[in-house]
Amino acid sequence: MRKITAGLFISVDGVIEDPQDWHFPYFNDEMGAAVDAQLGSADTLLLGRATYDGFAEAWPGREQEGGEDAPFAKKLGDARKVVVSHQNLELTWRNSEVLKGGLVEGVAALKAEQGGDIGMSGSVSVVRQLLVAGLLDELHLLVHPIVVGKGDRLFRDGSEEIGLRLLSSQTFATGVLNLVYTRAETSATGGYDEAKAHLAQ
Rank of each mutant, 00 (worst) to 15 (best):
D78H: 10
V176F: 03
L136C: 02
L199P: 03
Q170D: 15
E160Q: 13
D29K: 13
I16R: 07
Y181A: 02
A112P: 01
Y181Q: 07
H86C: 00
R94K: 15
S41F: 02
E194V: 12
Q170R: 15
I10C: 06
S169N: 11
A184F: 13
Q87V: 01
G134L: 00
A42Q: 01
F72N: 10
L154N: 05
D152L: 13
Q64P: 00
E63N: 09
P25N: 07
S125N: 12
H198Y: 15
Q201F: 06
F9W: 12
F24W: 14
V126S: 02
T182N: 02
F155M: 10
D53C: 01
N88H: 15
T44W: 00
V107C: 04
D193Y: 09
I162S: 05
L177P: 03
L99C: 07
E97W: 11
M120T: 01
K81F: 10
T44S: 09
S121A: 12
R80L: 11
G119Q: 02
N28E: 10
D117R: 05
K100L: 07
V124I: 10
E185N: 13
D152R: 14
L89N: 06
V127R: 08
W59R: 05
Q114W: 00
E68T: 09
L130C: 08
G190Y: 11
D29Q: 05
G61C: 03
E194M: 13
S121E: 07
D13Q: 00
D157R: 13
V127W: 02
A109C: 08
D18M: 13
D18Q: 13
A133L: 00
D21P: 00
A6R: 04
V84Y: 07
R165P: 00
G115I: 09
E113S: 06
S169K: 06
A56N: 08
G163C: 03
G102Q: 12
D53E: 15
D13T: 09
K150A: 13
G151V: 00
K81H: 09
R94D: 13
G7S: 15
